[in-house]
Design a protein around this nucleic acid. Structure first.
Lengths: 116, 116
DNA sequence: CATGCAGTACGATCGAACTCGTACAAGAAG
DNA sequence: CTTCTTGTACGAGTTCGATCGTACTGCATG
């Protein structure tokens, strides 16, 4: 058995809940906002590479609003954020969420924005 | 092919969204409250018979608060409510939710309240 | 060091939702 | 009809979250 290679070259993740502390009702509260649901869905479907800074999403909102939403996702345990120089890049905690709430991310991936 | 027997003896359901109008983010918003999550979970796990009035849940809240929460669940499309004489009984729209969001109710059934 | 850029922190505003008391409606039962 | 029961309607108080402007930090680059 080989030792899992520790990615020492990666920046430390910003504060986030441990896997076992992720609560389903909190995750659902984070996803109850259509903007945040769309962020997670886009990460799931289109992030071919790795993490993405919040400018990548092309959201037409002030930066201070985006900070609020990305923080909400991270503190709920849905995403992880790392600081890469200037940028704070996000990705979905896929393994953690699939372990705790299997099937949840499939629902998010299948989501479509309201037609209104 | 036999005609589906229409349950004419059942009271009409209270106003609720049609199946196709149930939105995932709205459902998640309704389930982001621990009290409501517990209501749905209890309905899923313990409702051997059919519907249940809101006294059956043994919730230690004023009646006017319970009205609010049961209405939130119904208007989100999570539950259906019918008037049986005095009582307004609820059940989960299992088929509708499994059709639109397969796996979601499994997550609710597996939910456990916060340890606090 | 000066400039520019990504993003945060803080605080104000505003609307929605939670909580609850009180009064009321409507069926059930004597 | 009177009373009891189940639950609603309405309204007030309060909390929470969304939005956003402004000022700021921290890194990068010249």
């Amino acid at each position: 058995m080989t030792v899992q290679p520790t990615p020492d070259d990666l920046p430390e993740p910003l504060p986030e809940p441990a896997v076992d502390d992720i609560r389903l009702e909190t995750v659902m509260g984070a996803l109850s906002d259509p903007l945040r649901m769309g962020i997670v869905r886009k990460l799931l479907l289109e992030s071919e590479q790795f993490d993405h800074p919040c400018g990548w999403f092309g959201l037409d909102r002030p930066k201070s609003s985006l900070t609020h939403h990305f923080k909400a996702l991270r503190e709920a345990g849905v995403t992880r954020q790392r600081q890469y120089g200037l940028e704070r890049r996000s990705h979905v905690r896929v393994d953690d969420l699939n372990t705790r709430f299997p099937g949840l991310l499939d629902l998010v991936a299948a989501w479509t924005p309201a037609s209104s």
